[in-house]
Design a protein around this nucleic acid. Structure first.
Length: 471
RNA sequence: GUCCCCAUCGUCUAGCCCGGUCCAGGACACCGGCCUUUCACGCCGGCGACAGGGGUUCAAAUCCCCUUGGGGACGCCA
């Protein structure tokens, strides 16, 4: 079987957003799944709006997502001579022609068409004039006047376009730069791309491109148009929908695999399965189960999926991601057993790395003050004695794991006739400074004997001072 | 305006191609409950949809047509 070659061709006129990432993902998965190749190509023929800054940002986002490419990145702006060759061929074979109609004239044509209810089209003034190249002339494709062009879409089936709907579209600007439809086709032909998965906003470009393939004597690739991603108001995604760039999700503490998982499920399914690892995605992805209807981006579901990924991903894989966010709290954490232990206790209670980092701070630095409502509720004078006893017990506990810790607590509880909660809450506050934290035993185990005792003693002093102040 | 695409719970979706097992299944969110050392996790239960109308058929979410609704394209942007 022929090697499958897919590509992702962003235009560097903006950041990589959710929709673009999904398109890239589909192409990437399909290539990885079939052992094919995946190409990255920047379509920067619009010199006005393309910038290096966006190129870098897109590369950065793709790398973070773990979407890697086998070839490229290519830049259309550096392949002008290639397009020129193909354009010349089209002219030579009578499939394209020079046109000297002014922009104003074209605009007037459109206006008129709009008024009389027709489709805005170029009227073909220069079509049969056989004009020679002149400065400022554009090159137009000579589109068939009759017949149909059929797009055999892998996702939607056959889509028929009457050729009369198409006009003689420009393939080369007056400044010599090629136009999108020409450039993609030439690139895809010369790069051997045989499978194109893209947004369905490109459907109406497809017949034009098919015509170009034929005029160039090239084989038409497989097309598959995926539905668009909509905002909560069901409108096409745009800046006004808020955080839509991939890097925004990185900054908000999302795990790349979770984003991938969410994105792929927005438009593709594998029965009832919701959770996928990257490997599972590659193994199970198929083009047959890509849906046909547009999907609304749902940040809440993405958040929930992120939490699920955080919960079920091995701590070693999570650690490098968390370290950056810990840095934001002034903590220079090392990727060691301590960090891994910390993550373990935070996994079931963190939806993002931002949350996890925040919750992890107390492990690295003893609380400087205690949550106020906790102090009122749990640091009462009567807990001073049990805490003193607990400190003494902990000093004698041989191993610091739950199995040995619990008897120590039970002993203190019995001596003072307390329920577990009565001692656990003050201890929680003493260790973490907060009323909400991971389990008591797991915290103690990670903090270790010295640190635990130090924090308990500090709390005991605090409680005593507190009592004196009141007296 | 013209052309094209789409249509199952609020949202993402399974089912639709190969009608009956679907008084429609899962997930997120929401509401109860259980578990419990806090918060979570987890578990159990609830709420909630085949856009409408015509056909075809013994039988339609599944096939056909129309309507309605939503989206996209119509650039010397990609």
């Amino acid at each position: 079987m022929e090697t499958l070659i897919t590509r992702f061709p962003p235009s560097p006129t903006g950041f990589l957003h959710i929709g673009g990432a999904r398109t890239a993902l589909f192409n990437w998965l399909y290539a990885r799944k079939t052992g094919g190749r995946f190409i990255l190509r920047f379509e920067d023929t619009d010199a006005e709006r393309s910038t290096q800054q966006y190129v870098d940002a897109i590369v950065d986002a793709l790398q973070w997502l773990g979407i890697d490419w086998d070839e490229g990145p290519f830049y259309q702006s550096r392949r002008l001579d290639v397009y020129e060759k193909y354009i010349q061929h089209l002219i030579d074979t009578g499939s394209a022609y020079y046109c000297t109609c002014s922009k104003e004239k074209i605009e007037a044509m459109r206006q008129q068409a709009a008024q009389s209810g027709g489709k805005p089209k170029y009227d073909g003034t220069c079509r049969e004039k056989n004009l020679p190249p002149t400065p400022g002339a554009v090159v137009r494709f000579k589109s068939p006047l009759m017949g149909n062009t059929v797009v055999e879409d892998k996702i939607r089936g056959n889509i028929v376009f009457p050729n009369a709907e198409l006009d003689d579209f420009i393939i080369r600007r007056s400044d010599g730069m090629p136009i999108y439809n020409l450039a993609v086709v030439v690139d895809d032909i010369s790069m051997g791309v045989n499978t194109i998965i893209r947004g369905d906003d490109h459907i109406s470009n497809t017949p034009k491109q098919i015509l170009l393939y034929r005029a160039l004597g090239a084989e038409v690739p497989d097309f598959g148009h995926v539905p668009m991603v909509l905002g909560p108001d069901k409108a096409r995604l745009s800046k006004r929908h808020g955080a839509m760039s991939v890097t925004a999700y990185r900054d908000m503490g999302y795990y790349p695999e979770a984003l991938l998982n969410y994105l792929v499920r927005l438009g593709w399914s594998h029965g009832d399965q919701e959770f996928f690892t990257r490997e599972e995605l590659i193994e199970k992805f198929d083009i047959e189960h890509i849906g046909r209807s547009a999907g609304v981006f749902n940040p809440e579901k993405l958040l929930a999926l992120n939490a699920e990924h955080i919960r079920s991903t091995p701590v070693e894989k999570l650690a490098p991601h968390l370290i950056g966010f810990l840095g934001g709290h002034g903590i220079a954490a090392e990727d060691n057993a301590f960090l891994h232990g910390v993550i373990k206790t935070l996994q079931p209670r963190s939806k993002t790395f931002v949350e996890m980092a925040e919750a992890a701070v107390f492990y690295y630095s003893a609380p400087e003050n205690y949550e106020e409502k906790g102090v009122k509720k749990f640091f009462k004078p009567e807990v001073a004695a049990p805490i003193r006893d607990l400190i003494a017990e902990l000093k004698n506990t041989e191993t610091f794991d739950e199995k040995h810790l619990e008897p120590a607590f039970v002993k203190v509880m019995e001596a003072h006739d307390l329920k577990f909660g009565k001692i656990a809450q003050p201890v929680r506050l003493a260790l973490s400074g907060k009323t909400v934290s991971p389990g008591i035993f797991e915290m103690i185990e990670i903090l270790g004997r010295d640190e635990t005792i130090a924090r308990l003693e500090k709390a005991a002093v605090f409680i005593r001072d507190q009592a004196e102040k009141q007296a």
